[in-house]
Measured scan of single mutants.
Amino acid sequence: MASQGTKRSYEQMETDGERQNATEIRASVGKMIDGIGRFYIQMCTELKLSDYEGRLIQNSLTIERMVLSAFDERRNKYLEEHPSAGKDPKKTGGPIYKRVDRKWMRELVLYDKEEIRRIWRQANNGDDATAGLTHMMIWHSNLNDTTYQRTRALVRTGMDPRMCSLMQGSTLPRRSGAAGAAVKGVGTMVMELIRMIKRGINDRNFWRGENGRKTRSAYERMCNILKGKFQTAAQRAMMDQVRESRNPGNAEIEDLIFLARSALILRGSVAHKSCLPACVYGPAVASGYDFEKEGYSLVGIDPFKLLQNSQVYSLIRPNENPAHKSQLVWMACNSAAFEDLRVLSFIRGTKVSPRGKLSTRGVQIASNENMDAMESSTLELRSRYWAIRTRSGGNTNQQRASAGQISVQPAFSVQRNLPFDKPTIMAAFTGNTEGRTSDMRAEIIRMMEGAKPEEMSFQGRGVFELSDERAANPIVPSFDMSNEGSYFFGDNAEEYDN
C-alpha cells in the first residue's frame, strides 16, 4: 500500500510504541512475548500442572481467558453494579484439565481477579502490559475465525453469508486497541457500523446529549479505520460520505453494504499476525530463551520457528480426527482463516481442507461434555516452508469459486491468482447506482469489472525454506488448481455463540 510509510507498523501498534527502528520493534515485541511466557509459567505453578498438562491447549485457553477477564475493567465495573446470582464479580476462573488415573478430569478453578492481575503485572515488570493482553485477544479471535462461520451475524446486519472472507476479527472485544483495529476485516468494521446506525434509528437519543457526542466521535473513528483499509480513492470518498452524514440511517447502511461487497474484489488491507497460545510461549521462556534479547516478529519467520520446536497437546472428542484438529489450530496460529487453501497447503506441506470436510468441533470443551471418553493427542503445528504475512489485500483475480465463501483475504505475501467468483459478486451490483453516491458507485463498479483474471497478485513473492531466515531465496510455489480455494466452501461450520 502506498501510504505504508505514514502508518505505524503493526509491531508498533502491538507494543504501543512511538516510531521505533526494526531492532527496537523486535525487542519490544519480544518483551511482550516474554511477559506472556513468564505469566503462563507462574500460572502453571499456581495450578500445580504437570509439564504435559501445561502444554494442553484447553488449559492455555482457560488461563488466557482468566487474565483477560481480570483486566476487563468495563465488564468488571458492570458486574459490580449489576450483581447477578451466583456470579462473584471479583473472581474469575474456568475449567482446568488434569490427568488422573490414566483419565482426563475437569476441575473448575476460581481465583481472585486481583490475584491474577498481581501475577500478570509481576510477570511483566510491574506494568499492565496491555500489548500482551491484546495479543491474547487476537489469538482467540484468530481461533474463532478458523472455527466458526459468522453466517447468522452477517444475515442479521443485512449482509450476504458468502462475504465471510471479510469477517476477520469479528469476535475481537471493543477494547483491543490499535492492534485489534489493524486485524479487523472490512466486513467486521461494516458490521460494527451498521449495528451502531441501527441503534440510532431505533433509539432517538442515541446521537443526542453528552453521551451522543461520545457516540458520534466513536462512529467517526470507526469510519476512519474502515476508510484506511480501502485502497481505492472511490471507496475512500464513499467512506467520507458515510462519516460526514448528519443523521446516519438506511442510506448509510446501503452504502456500507455496497462497500463491503466491493471489497470482495477491490480488497481492503487487513493486517495478519501470528499470535500463538500462551502454552507455546511459556515452555520456550522456561527453556531459557530470551525473546527480548533475541527479538521477535509476528509477521516473519519467528512464529514458524517457534511452532517448529513446540509440543502442544489437545483434548480430542471420541469421533474427532486429531489431524483435522491440528489443521484448525495451525490455521489459527498463522492467522489464515480466509487465505486461499492452495497457498496454505503449499506452505504447510500437507493438504489443507475446507472447514466442512474437517471432523472436528471447536477447541474448547463445553462444561456439560462427558470427560470419560476424552483422549488427548499432539497437535501437528509444523510447516514445510515459511512466508511473510501481508497486510495488503493483493490485486484481484477471477477463479472458480464456491457456493460458500466467494473470495479470499490473503494472509501471506505469496504470488498467486486470487480466487473470487466474479459473476456471483457482480450480480449483486445491478441497477442500484442512484442517489448521492452514484458517481462513486459507478466508478467502483467500473474498477471491479476491469479486474483481470490473468493478473498475478504479489508478483514474484515466494515462500522460503525454514533454514532461509533472511528470506534470501524465494520459492514461487505451484498450486494444484483442481483443489478448492475457499475454506468455508459450501460450508456447515458451527455458528459462533458468545
Score class of each variant (00 low, 15 high):
215 T>V: 14
380 E>W: 10
410 P>S: 08
438 S>L: 15
329 V>N: 05
183 V>C: 01
8 R>I: 11
57 I>W: 08
194 I>N: 04
428 A>E: 06
294 E>T: 00
366 A>V: 15
247 N>K: 04
386 W>R: 14
495 E>H: 07
69 S>V: 06
182 A>F: 03
236 R>C: 12
65 R>Q: 10
226 L>G: 07
439 D>E: 01
434 E>F: 09
437 T>L: 07
362 G>W: 13
62 T>N: 15
60 S>Y: 09
434 E>W: 06
240 D>H: 04
373 A>G: 01
390 T>R: 07
404 G>N: 09
420 F>A: 02
428 A>S: 15
324 H>S: 01
460 G>R: 01
180 G>Q: 10
425 I>L: 15
130 T>H: 00
168 Q>T: 14
307 L>E: 13
492 N>C: 12
6 T>R: 11
26 R>W: 08
244 E>G: 09
288 G>R: 04
304 F>R: 06
49 L>T: 00
401 A>S: 05
388 I>G: 13
174 R>V: 10
93 G>P: 12
456 M>Q: 05
159 M>T: 12
468 D>K: 08
158 G>I: 09
262 S>E: 10
295 G>Y: 10
328 L>S: 02
143 L>S: 12
438 S>F: 14
263 A>I: 09
184 K>F: 10
41 I>E: 15
95 P>M: 09
468 D>M: 10
390 T>D: 05
287 S>P: 10
368 N>Q: 15
428 A>K: 02
263 A>F: 07
322 P>A: 14
210 E>T: 12
319 N>I: 08
304 F>E: 04
466 L>T: 00
485 G>I: 12
476 V>C: 01
254 E>M: 08
492 N>L: 13
78 Y>K: 05
319 N>V: 00
411 A>W: 06
455 E>Q: 12
454 E>H: 02
383 S>H: 15
62 T>E: 06
228 G>E: 02
281 Y>N: 03
417 N>I: 03
298 L>V: 02
236 R>F: 12
413 S>Q: 10
191 M>R: 15
23 T>E: 13
86 G>S: 03
482 S>I: 01
48 K>H: 06
425 I>A: 05
149 Q>P: 14
159 M>F: 08
17 G>V: 13
38 R>D: 10
28 S>P: 00
62 T>Q: 13
66 M>D: 10
77 K>N: 04
207 W>C: 06
92 T>D: 04
126 G>W: 13
229 K>Y: 11
69 S>T: 14
467 S>G: 15
310 S>R: 08
224 N>L: 10
104 W>K: 07
33 I>S: 05
310 S>Q: 01
371 M>D: 06
412 F>V: 15
112 D>L: 12
141 S>A: 09
416 R>E: 12
244 E>W: 10
333 C>R: 15
41 I>Y: 09
79 L>E: 14
361 R>I: 08
21 N>K: 05
366 A>F: 10
374 M>S: 03
44 C>M: 14
252 E>P: 11
345 S>C: 12
55 R>L: 08
451 A>V: 12
206 F>R: 07
217 S>G: 04
158 G>C: 14
292 E>V: 01
112 D>V: 08
127 D>C: 00
472 A>H: 09
139 W>S: 01
154 L>E: 06
392 S>C: 14
451 A>H: 15
364 Q>G: 12
405 Q>K: 02
144 N>M: 06
488 F>R: 11
300 G>T: 08
92 T>H: 08
267 R>F: 05
463 V>L: 00
247 N>G: 00
498 N>V: 13
498 N>F: 00
257 I>G: 08
282 G>N: 12
202 N>H: 00
357 K>S: 04
328 L>F: 04
302 D>R: 15
326 S>P: 11
327 Q>L: 06
343 V>T: 13
430 T>I: 03
196 M>A: 00
338 F>C: 09
401 A>H: 12
122 Q>T: 01
257 I>P: 09
108 L>E: 10
364 Q>D: 13
278 A>W: 09
497 D>H: 02
209 G>Y: 11
5 G>M: 09
241 Q>R: 15
74 R>G: 13
132 G>S: 15
481 M>Y: 02
347 I>E: 09
399 Q>W: 14
248 P>I: 10
268 G>T: 01
378 T>H: 01
397 N>H: 12
412 F>C: 02
219 Y>T: 08
185 G>P: 03
101 D>V: 12
471 A>C: 06
181 A>M: 13
54 G>Q: 00
58 Q>L: 13
384 R>C: 00
251 A>T: 12
230 F>P: 14
82 H>D: 01
152 R>K: 06
152 R>P: 02
289 Y>T: 09
161 P>R: 02
198 K>T: 14
264 L>E: 06
332 A>T: 15
440 M>W: 07
361 R>M: 10
460 G>M: 00
218 A>P: 12
31 K>Y: 09
351 K>R: 14
225 I>K: 12
79 L>M: 04
66 M>Q: 05
89 P>W: 04
192 E>L: 08
167 M>D: 10
134 T>F: 10
488 F>P: 11
420 F>L: 02
357 K>A: 09
95 P>I: 12
421 D>A: 02
63 I>K: 12
440 M>D: 01
271 A>R: 09
141 S>N: 09
406 I>W: 12
85 A>T: 04
480 D>W: 02
327 Q>A: 14
270 V>S: 12
303 P>G: 10
105 M>I: 06
104 W>T: 05
364 Q>P: 00
179 A>T: 14
451 A>F: 01
281 Y>H: 02
260 A>G: 05
